[in-house]
């Protein structure tokens, strides 16, 4: 797989990372290097082998359906850039999103 400038620009857009045009070539090269390390793994034949999801044989833990959390709106919005606080609870605010 080879990464061209346009692909890098697209990945950057999807990830919401601003990359200057002048940096695209350099980044394409760096990402290309990373990709080729990963592609070495493709040399192994893994057909018929279940993907490993954990280093230890264990099942997904499941919790009881109980309300054990929440109720601290002030902590939730504590780091918001421009929160609007009410009598109880508060909102995050962002520049208007219009559909």
């Amino acid at each position: 797989m080879s990464l061209d400038k346009a692909t890098v620009a697209r990945i950057a857009t999807l990830a919401r990372i601003k990359v200057a045009d002048a940096d695209l070539d350099r980044m394409a090269g760096e990402l290309q290097n990373i990709m080729s390390w990963i592609e070495q793994l493709n040399e192994l034949d893994t057909s018929g082998i279940e993907p490993m999801t954990s280093a230890v044989e264990t099942l997904l833990p499941q919790r009881e359906d109980q309300v054990t959390d929440g109720g601290y709106a002030e902590k939730i919005v504590a780091n918001a850039a421009e929160p609007v606080r009410g009598v109880d609870g508060g909102f995050f605010t962002v520049p208007k999103v219009v559909e």
């Binding site: 359906d65 109980q66 309300v67 959390d69 929440g70 709106a73 919005v77 009410g86 508060g90």
Partner: peptide, 27 residues
């Protein structure tokens, strides 16, 4: 229909005051 959320213990009731039924996981 459940009392708490899919991956956190915050409540699911409709119409509560803003951000009062939010855990750090949900945020």
């Amino acid at each position: 229909i459940s009392k708490s959320k899919l991956f956190s213990g915050a409540a699911t009731d409709f119409g509560a005051a803003p951000n009062t039924q939010v855990s750090f996981v949900d945020a």
